[in-house]
Design a binder for these strands. Structure first.
Lengths: 246, 246
DNA sequence: ACCTGAACACCGTTCAAGT
DNA sequence: ACCTGAACACCGTTCAAGT
């Protein structure tokens, strides 16, 4: 009955068009709504037409990841906080500044497409590295290049990379967990549905969960990152640059 | 044709039996194989019989999370490395020892049921706290209780909790990402399918990815945890105990 | 080359009925 | 109370056909 969206967008199909429509659909109605048939309808096309661009449903999910990291990369290219313009401060080596910039770009895109996060977090578990979408490969190569330029040996670079991804991914997942039961309700306990929690069994849960909202997610992410990365060994080249700058 | 499993397990249905069968099915054949109809067949029952115990497919996924954390809690109860038997060392307060024990128990269960990890990582994003499975609530309450007993105020306890979950979850996800393309192949580059990566575009990726296997995942998890938690403020009661012990 | 349209196997879930 | 069985709407995907 209610005509949804604009089903008759007759511009010719292409992979970017299909992926953009998929992301838009997921943004609007959630992951569960992403269906070959539904997406085709949104594009004003028969379901089978999509198979020329997406390699089936699984491929479509990989497409979401592709679109996600393409947006991250785009944001890194055009970001106003350019890495290069920041002069390397004495307190912090350049590679750490850049890693933080990457983490922030990812966080931004998650914020723009929160419904896509589950796919981004979990899809890599079933896709071998060589088959990951190109924008993911590019971003990862970029991070490794930054670490190599800073003078880290392979083994240390890998440790830093793993730490970086683990922390960023974990933070983003935890941030988005704060689901509300009844958004209208002003009282936080009722809004979060906590009145259903037996207070006798879970006293601290009841007391602490409402305070989750007080947190500055982005600050937690960057602070924790600094804490983890400051534990990393010195990079010889950074030490060199620091000497040169002083 | 090939008769699968033991379809005629005629012992009466119950929620634990259904969930155990679900976990077993996912362990054997992956998440995609978990279907109301398939699970019913495994239990030798009509699909609709499951609805008395699981509240539909979504509820079944929550059931996986429930079974997961029930196993974690069970492991914590019976673990040989009991928290109480470790005398509080001068170097480390008791709450950190206990958090590490929890992280290790979770890691163990992930290792036992790797296919369940995606659900554990992502389901909380769509389930409000009050509706989370009981074992999850119990474990979370336990962690908060440990932190309160150590003397942390609410706000600090929450920070520590968030840090703890973010890091553990991120590590577990990163650990399980190392997908192989062709398990038989001895050469790591071929086994990981990296020969398909254009070496000109991704030189560092090609060089570094094979070295992922060298890592001791559990050590990375506990080391990073120590690094993050040692940044946390002092707990007044722990300071008290430390004075008392010396 | 690009898309349609019918068909198939499988899915979650409803409802009314059995015992 | 517990399970069955038929039915329905919707899904991903095949295949052959259109243009």
């Amino acid at each position: 009955m209610a005509e949804r969206g604009k089903p008759e967008r007759r511009r010719r199909l292409s992979r970017p068009v299909v992926l953009a429509a998929a992301v838009a659909l997921v943004d609007r109605e959630g992951l569960a709504a992403l269906t070959m048939r539904r997406l085709a309808a949104d594009l004003g096309v028969e379901p089978m037409a999509l198979y020329r661009y997406t390699d089936g449903k699984e491929g479509l999910l990989d497409g979401l990841v592709e679109a996600f990291f393409a947006e991250v990369n785009e944001r890194l290219r055009t970001s106003v906080e350019r890495a290069r313009t920041d002069p390397p401060s004495a307190a912090e080596p350049a590679w750490r500044t850049e890693l933080r910039r990457v983490a922030r770009a990812v966080a931004c895109v998650v914020h723009a497409h929160p419904e896509v996060l589950p796919v981004v977090a979990v899809r890599p578990l079933s896709v071998p590295v060589a088959r990951r979408p190109e924008p993911w490969l590019q971003l990862t190569e970029h991070v490794f290049a930054v670490l190599a330029r800073a003078g880290f040996d392979d083994r240390t670079a890998l440790t830093i990379y793993r730490t970086f991804v683990s922390w960023s991914l974990g933070c983003l997942l935890v941030d988005k967990r704060q689901l509300v039961d009844n958004p209208e309700e002003p009282d936080p306990v009722l809004r979060l549905g906590l009145h259903r929690l037996p207070a006798a069994d879970y006293p601290r849960l009841r007391a602490l969960v409402p305070r989750f909202a007080e947190y500055d997610d982005e600050r937690e992410l960057t602070d924790g990152l600094d804490s983890l990365l400051s534990r990393m060994p010195e990079a010889p080249l950074d030490a060199f640059y620091d000497r040169g700058a002083s």
